[in-house]
């Protein structure tokens, strides 16, 4: 049993990280009052941008610098792409769910359209992604060394830092509190002198940047190839956001749950102890649990009160 856990752990964490960072992006957007169902599309745009960048540069440059450039480009592309959603939902008071859906559709179609035009097949391969490494010294610690500090990616540590910084920003800084006030009661926020439109723009752009990063990490760690989708991880991130009750640490817990559940389902066939469970049960397990969790949390939902509503300064 122990060896199974030991084997699964690193994979589960690798799978969790893109989900975590995307859900965190969604958190910034929703806390500012804009529902962002376009996370999936933003992830795809980031995945595409990073794959294209790395594919383009990998012959002329070597080492991990290329990969970090790829991540940076993904962040920028995700951020720019999210402006479409910000413009529609903030300036034009469009239905945020529909605008987000349009973002998803544009990303899914346009990236494959461009990729097919560039490579012919619509897939973009990268030859070298991030390589896993054992953290020196820490990986020697018994038990947790094997679980947490072996076969880790540099991006994992980077994202965990981003998580901590985000939690700090949201809860302890002036900006974070303003952001949250825009999601709860924007009219009061405006009366207090906060520029709601600006804050919401920043919220959506952070969600674009982090989702783009999430999509890029999928490509540069475990996928290695852009195929035009991120297999619904963006939607899963959205569910994690609700599951995690719109709090950074809650999101960490929710995404870890999804990471483990998916990894267990994926490896169940090769592990005899798990092979006795019908695979369909393992595959639908995370989704069923999410549904149940949504029902349980529905009574005490911590959702930002103004999320999804266009900002109307005259409303009381």
């Amino acid at each position: 049993m122990w060896t199974i856990i030991e084997q699964i752990f690193p994979y589960a964490i690798v799978f969790t990280i893109p989900l975590l960072i995307t859900a965190l992006g969604g958190l910034f957007s929703e806390r500012s009052g804009i529902v962002n169902i376009g996370l999936e599309g933003l992830m795809i745009s980031g995945a595409f941008a990073s794959a294209l960048t790395v594919n383009f540069l990998q012959d002329s440059m070597s080492g991990s610098a290329v990969l970090w450039i790829g991540l940076l480009v993904a962040v920028i592309v995700g951020m720019l792409f999210s402006l479409l959603h910000a413009f529609a939902s903030i300036n034009l008071s469009a239905d945020q769910v529909i605008s987000g859906t349009a973002i998803n559709m544009i990303a899914m179609a346009l990236t494959v359209f461009l990729a097919r035009n560039i490579t012919g097949s619509g897939n973009i391969r990268i030859t070298n992604g991030f390589t896993p490494f054992d953290v020196p010294i820490l990986s020697q610690i018994p038990i947790i060394g094997d679980l947490l500090f072996t076969k880790t990616y540099a991006t994992t540590w980077f994202i965990l830092v981003v998580l901590l910084v985000s939690a700090f920003i949201l809860n302890k800084t002036k900006f974070g509190l303003r952001l949250k006030s825009c999601g709860e009661f924007p009219q009061a926020a405006q009366a207090a002198g906060i520029n709601v439109v600006r804050i919401r723009y920043i919220g959506v752009m952070i969600s674009g940047a982090l989702s783009g990063l999430g999509g890029a990490i999928i490509i540069l760690t475990y996928a290695g190839e852009f195929t035009g989708s991120v297999s619904g991880l963006g939607f899963l991130a959205l569910a994690s956001l609700i599951f995690g009750q719109w709090r950074p640490l809650g999101i960490l817990g929710a995404t870890l749950f999804f990471g483990f559940a998916s990894t267990i389902a994926n490896v169940s066939q090769v592990i005899p102890e798990l092979a006795v469970i019908p695979p369909i049960i393992l595959k639908i397990f995370p989704y069923v649990v999410t549904l149940i969790a949504l029902v349980i949390f529905s009574k005490s939902s911590q959702a930002p009160k103004a999320a999804g509503e266009p900002f109307d300064p005259g409303k009381r």
Partner: peptide, 22 residues
């Protein structure tokens, strides 16, 4: 021309329909 052109056109139409306020 890649056949994904159809999806792209549809997606862009939807963005414009969503921002019909404009």
């Amino acid at each position: 021309i890649p056949p994904e052109l159809a999806n792209t056109i549809i997606a862009i139409i939807i963005y414009f329909a969503a921002t019909s306020v404009m």
